[in-house]
Structures are given as C-alpha cells and as structure tokens.
Design a protein around this nucleic acid. Structure first.
Lengths: 153, 153
DNA sequence: AACCTGGCTTGTGAATTGCATAGTTAGGTG
DNA sequence: CACCTAACTATGCAATTCACAAGCCAGGTT
C-alpha cells in the first residue's frame, strides 16, 4: 500500500523527497490558510501586493512571506510593473502549475458554499457562453459520477 | 468585496460564524494534513479504525482525535459492527457532506500527481464503463474551461 | 471474577502558522 | 542631497498540529 509511506515520514520530514502521496504533497504547498487564500486571489485575477493584502485580509508580513514561498514553489512569478510617477513594483502572476490548481480551489469553494452556513460564494461563469462554471467529477466518457460509481486501485 | 471579511476575523476567531469565505470555511474543516488524509481514505472506502491508522500512517492518537472532529463536523458517522467472537467496534462512513468532498480530494490529488515529483498516484475509474475518472472545470454547457475563460463576480 | 485488547484519552515537546509590531530597504521624485 | 513609502524583514507571542508515550476504558471471552 504505497500511501502508507507518507506516514512513515515524520511530520518534520514532510519536505523530504520521499513523500509519495499526491494529496499530501499538494497540501504541503497550499495547505495553509494563507497559501490557499492567496492562490484563490491569484486565480481570480489579483496581481498587486496591496490587493492581495486587502482581499485576503492577511497581514503584510504573512502575504510577503507566503507569496515568496509560492514563487519558490513555482506556483507564481513576480513581474515588474511601473505606474507613472511611481517606483518599479512587482506583481504576481500564475505559472502553469499555479493555474492547474483551479479545479482544487473551485471545488474547495463549492464545498464550503454548499455546506458551511453563512458563506457568500462567488459566481463563476464561462466568458463566452455565460453558463455557470464549477468543478465536477466525471469519467473520460463524460459520465457525471457519484462516489459509489468510482473504483480505486 | 465580500471576501475581505474573512480577514477582518482574526485567526483565533476563525471558528466564528461570521466567516463568509467558502474556501476558508472548507479549510477550517479539512485543512489539516490529518483531516484530508482521513477523508481521502474514507472516500476510497476505508471503514475500520485500524485501517485508517495503517493507511494514513498517522498515530492512533491523531486518528482518534481527528475522526472525532470529522464526526462532529458531520463529514463522517460512526457505525457499530461486530466480527464473530470480538467486541462491538465502530467504523466510520461518509455523510452526504463528506461525499461532496470528492471533487476537492480528487483535484488536490491530481495536482500533486502532476506537479510533485516522485508521487505515486492512485488510478480511478468509472465502475460501469471503465474509463478513467478525474475532476474537471466546466460550464453548464459542458465546455471544458481554462482559467482565462472564466469570469468571476 | 480475571484477562485481553482495540480504541481511545492524556500529557509533553517540537514545529508551524499567523497576528501584531517595529524596523529596514530601495525605487522613485523634488 | 532629503524625503516618501511600498514592500518587505525581523521579532515575540499565542494557537494549532502531530509525534511519541503512558495510561485508561469497555466489550468481549474464559
């Protein structure tokens, strides 16, 4: 059982290249509140440092530190920009790797919107056709699947 | 900007019913390593306490404590069972709420399998047609979408 | 009754996270 | 040059998580 390996690694060795479990590895990168909120914002189009701070409500210290970690983890890249009469500053944009987190961020949001009382969910739609967007589980033949219809090996 | 509210709540008040951000709320329930690993196992069919322990590699203390929290959070329920000649024991099964985490768990796993080196991904397939299963982002008209094709309000 | 043992409960310590706060740095302008 | 200030860096603190280990409890059997 390959997944048992993840437990053989103590928590302090979580960064070991020996971690085999994909979920465990994803959580190591975006499993903190600050990381997931920042990735949420990046996926929703936020670019500037002060917007990340304002929209997540995290402190500047945490935003700076975590954005740096997300850049190191290759989820974001810094891009210089300059507004007239101001210094050169840096914004943060997604890498391909960062973009690939969209299904996870969407589905985490969907779960909270459905099951956590008092949440205010954002609305997502397809720019071209206007239909609402969400994350779904399906097979390659486009069958929409419930948990019981899935086999795991 | 409704999402700024989540930051107004200090971290120590994260359990406040004032949290409005769906993702933040989901992470409060399953944002720990132990919770996500246990939910992974429950979604993949694990039922017995000692199997949760063996398959996650977490300690019994953590499994017991976290399973209890997941029951309180209405993601799992305890079910008594008894094998011949043994005591009554309890297994853990999914609630509807727990089942609804499947897209999130799948997509977190997909991301790790694709982007984290050295991971060993499980294979999921549709029991009926045998086609591989995954989490995707699409609109109600079944268009498969990239990040740039989604508008947020 | 005693015994066994699976599933906890409890306590300790290390690591991590994020808040609050003070301070620093560097890219501009005047 | 001085000044401004956005984006950090650094520090102290509290809370949380999880590993480790000891101990407890309760449902069975004998």
């Amino acid at each position: 059982m390959a997944f048992a390996l993840s437990g053989v690694m103590r928590r302090r060795a979580r960064t070991s290249p020996g971690d085999r479990c994909p979920i465990d590895r994803t959580m190591q990168v975006v499993g903190t509140r600050s990381a997931i909120l920042l990735m949420r914002e990046a996926l929703f189009g936020t670019f500037k440092f002060d917007d990340f701070v304002a929209r997540t409500g995290l402190t500047e210290a945490v935003v700076a530190s975590r954005l740096r970690a997300l850049v190191v983890a290759d989820l974001l890249v810094r891009e210089p920009y300059q507004e007239p009469g101001q210094r050169t500053r840096h914004g943060y944009t997604l890498t391909d790797s960062g973009r690939d987190l969209m299904p996870a961020v969407l589905s985490l949001g969907q779960w909270g919107a459905k099951h956590a009382p008092g949440t205010i969910a954002r609305q997502f739609s397809h720019a071209d056709c206007g239909e609402p967007v969400r994350a779904v589980v399906e097979c390659a033949a486009h069958h929409r699947l419930a948990v019981e219809e899935i086999t795991v090996e």
